[in-house]
């Protein structure tokens, strides 16, 4: 099959199992979908269903048991510059300042200092951390640390940005502000984003399409398009159109749980 020109990522019949001494744990089962260039995709599913596993696979950190992931038609076999990942925790190095943390990917690639500094200044501006370059991450609030982590992932200028519950540990208000900031960032840059979230509201607000996963082993229950006009902002959260999408997502999640309960993971050929 030839990928259509705007397909950026293609996930094909992905299975992931963790082989442990106590037995095999199946985390993902036959996951297939395509991500188009410039698209914002949200991934939702019950906790432990394999969302992080899927992102780690897309980032090339975890080889799948079966199936494959293609980036512009080329199979991903390991980490690539074109794919950036923001972990659930900010994972900023405590011995480096904010600016030095953001510069890390550039430094590892051996980019000259002057270029690096300019790029870092741009990134700080972009995520709203200008003025905090010399601060150590321990002094940042949760939201600021996560923005620094996003800036670090953007430093290598990835074609697709993977975000693993980036706002998971933030309070509701900060969370909404961060969602707004991310939305604005994405609208300006038109970068491809794939984000895991446990908030259906957030998913409906941000995404072009929402991929709903079943309980473990994660299978795709449904892929729900969000046909709301852009640019969007958090005031849409009260909009009846968005709320009907939220209801649809909740229903899909519930369907997934029901299917999951009726079906114990059978052995596969």
């Amino acid at each position: 099959m030839i990928a259509s020109p705007e397909t950026l990522l293609e996930i094909k019949n992905l299975y992931t199992a963790f082989v442990e001494p106590e037995g095999t744990l199946e985390a993902l089962e036959d996951v297939s979908f395509k991500v188009l260039q410039g698209e914002f995709i949200c991934l939702i599913g019950p906790s432990g269903c394999g969302k992080s596993t899927l992102l780690r696979t897309l980032a090339g950190l975890l080889p799948p048991s079966k199936g494959e992931v293609r980036l512009r038609g080329i199979p991903i076999r390991g980490p690539e510059h074109a794919v950036g990942l923001v972990f659930q925790q900010p994972t900023l190095l405590p011995w480096r300042t904010v600016a030095e943390n953001i510069a890390l990917p550039l430094e590892l690639r051996g980019q000259p200092l002057a270029e690096r500094q300019q790029r870092v200044a741009e990134l700080l501006e972009m995520v709203g951390l200008a003025g905090f370059e010399a601060t150590y991450p321990q002094l940042l609030s949760g939201g600021m640390a996560q923005r620094a982590a996003i800036a670090r992932a953007l430093a290598q200028n990835p074609e697709v940005l993977l975000l693993d519950e980036p706002f998971g540990s933030l309070d509701a208000l900060t969370r909404e502000r961060m969602a707004a900031a991310l939305l604005e960032l994405w609208q300006r840059q038109q970068r491809t984003v794939l984000m895991v979230t446990h908030s259906v509201d957030e998913a409906a607000l941000l995404a072009d399409r929402v991929v709903v996963l079943s309980p473990r082993p994660g299978r795709i229950i449904d892929i729900i398009p969000v046909r709301l006009p852009r640019p969007r902002d958090p005031s849409l959260l009260l909009d009846p159109r968005l709320q009907s999408v939220v209801r649809e997502l909740r229903q899909a999640l519930k369907n997934g749980e029901l299917q999951g309960n009726g079906r114990n993971s059978q052995p596969k050929a």
Binding site: G78, P79, L85, L93, L108
Partner: peptide, 22 residues
């Protein structure tokens, strides 16, 4: 922190870079 190790893997750091910077 295993998270830090993952970051360096993700950034395709060489063994030497991991030693020197992590």
């Amino acid at each position: 922190d295993n998270g830090f190790r993952q970051v360096f893997r993700l950034l395709e750091a060489t063994r030497w870079q991991r030693f020197r910077w992590l």
